[in-house]
Amino acid sequence: MEPLKALILTECDRLKHGIPCDFVGVALQNRNNPDITWPYAIGNRNDKHKYITVRYGKGIAGKVISSGTPMEITDFPETILGKITDYPIMLAEKLVAAYSVPLVWNDLPKGALLIGYRHARKFDEQEKQNLREVAQHLESFLSSHFTDE
């Protein structure tokens, strides 16, 4: 396994067991265009995330990256704005609740870290803060994704 992948998946695994939650995913913008993919996932039920490419501003990851702010879904599809097909990762992984925070690189949001559950739930401040801390840690690995380092 390549070093970056191993580092990120180890962090995701630690996060999944530490919280605990059903799914942890990392979405990143491509190096050469604004499209976003889900290269890293733990707790996935299938490989759909590997083929999903969301446009900047679309889907949970696209919205988190374009706005630079976290996003919370507590009871999918009951509490969402727009159509259920606007949330492909929720459909692909059968997630019902998710919280996602931006991953910042070079002062710009370039990725998203997401934790998901396959049942409805709310997220408290402590959980949100924990996720922000893990996101900050993951941000230190992003140089090798966006540069030739």
């Binding site: 759909k48 995330h49 083929y51 999903i52 490419t53 692909a92």
Partner: peptide, 8 residues
């Protein structure tokens, strides 16, 4: 469709 939903 595959790019959107990951279904081949």
């Amino acid at each position: 469709f595959t790019n959107t939903f990951g279904i081949l």
